[in-house]
Write a protein that binds this DNA or RNA. Structure first.
Lengths: 204, 204
DNA sequence: TAATATAGGAAACATTTGTTCTCTTTGCAA
DNA sequence: TTGCAAAGAGAACAAATGTTTCCTATATTA
């Protein structure tokens, strides 16, 4: 499903107009911008763009269309308790949306978890902090990861990750807590959700 | 030049609509959203909003207006070194804009400072953290404040604030550092910039 | 060659939409 | 009370705007 040169010109002009003016152009304004004289000529192209999915039109409304271009998300989903068997980012797991641009933390698809307890206090992470996580399946030794241990809880926890020859270890950053060590087939119970890439401490 | 409750409702709805739909609402769509039945009732408010500068209208065009000045800013200014004699938020002191909605921290006019050193490590604040500050002139004992000491530096620092009978004390949250104590007229050298209301730790 | 797809023009038409007018209601102050 | 201002309803009007129909021109393809 390609797009012809002319159609791309039209789409680009619509974006330019919207960025400059703050609202979408009318058909005749597009004509003027492209040097056309008849709105009738243009509407055929606009309909094609709609059919191909580049344009969302609202039938019956004037000067009302959405320009679809994957806009980067402007917020980070806050994940609460995790329903069994669902992917982490499933709608039912989302507790809130944090009005923070994830690019601030260098990731496009981050999510956040609320930290409970003081097991990471030596990493300057407090009870109540929001941990920003970039999703990934595996981790480097020594990095802080969000993990969930199968059958143990329904909430993710932060731990320092360490893989040894025959075991996987999850270490707290607080000498008052014991590390969790998984041997042999138990290692499969440790599910890495992602790597810690930032912290937000709101309403201190 | 205030803005009445009703006018704020209308402006908020216009923003909500634009964010949701991708294009501005028509007068009658605003009516439906607010429970009004007559566009004639609404246009008076819209004109007032235009006069007060909250709305840019394009005469003769349908469904075409710019929404100026979001009700609340969507970013927090990051303040770097402070030029002598300027207000903290002056343009020349701004180093960057953090794409974070300040309402996340419960304030509308927050700014941020980059933390240098580990003098607040016991408060779980690290070198490189961004401290979110709500501007205020005074502070309660025991709270963490951003202060600048006149004649000493051009950068604000975080300290735990304590006012005694005859002195003002600025305590680090790290036993390796000494508190700063100001007696008598020296107390005037301590300028409080604001109170710590949040922490952001980016790109960990 | 004829057929077809793409691109554009001009005019007429129907709906949306901003605008203007008059009227009513409510709350507040002189 | 009277007067005034803000808020809203309803109807009618004019301009903007999307839509349709019928036309021409050019390039490509069977």
């Amino acid at each position: 499903m390609g797009i012809t040169n002319r159609q791309k010109e039209i789409l680009d002009y619509m974006w330019t107009f919207q960025d400059r003016e703050g609202f979408p152009p009318s058909l005749r304004e597009i004509c003027k911008g492209l040097g056309l004289t008849s709105a009738g000529s243009l509407i055929k192209h606009v309909r094609t763009l709609e059919d191909k999915g580049f344009l969302g039109r609202m039938p019956g409304k004037k000067r009302a269309w959405r320009l679809r271009r994957r806009p980067a998300p402007l917020s980070i989903p806050l994940i609460g308790a995790i329903a069994a068997g669902t992917p982490i980012l499933a709608e039912e797991n989302r507790e809130d949306e944090l009005p923070v641009d994830p690019k601030l933390f260098g990731a496009a698809d981050a999510f956040a978890l609320r930290v409970k307890g003081d097991s990471m206090i030596d990493a300057q992470i407090r009870d109540g902090d929001l941990a920003v996580i970039r999703p990934q399946q595996d981790a480097e030794n020594g990095t802080v990861v969000a993990v969930i241990v199968e059958g143990l809880q329904h909430e993710a926890t932060l731990k320092i990750f360490r893989r040894r020859d025959e075991s996987v270890e999850l270490h707290p950053a607080n000498p008052a807590y014991e590390p969790l060590i998984f041997h042999q087939e138990d290692r499969a119970k440790v599910k890495i959700l992602g790597r810690l890439i930032g912290v937000i401490r709101p309403k201190l």
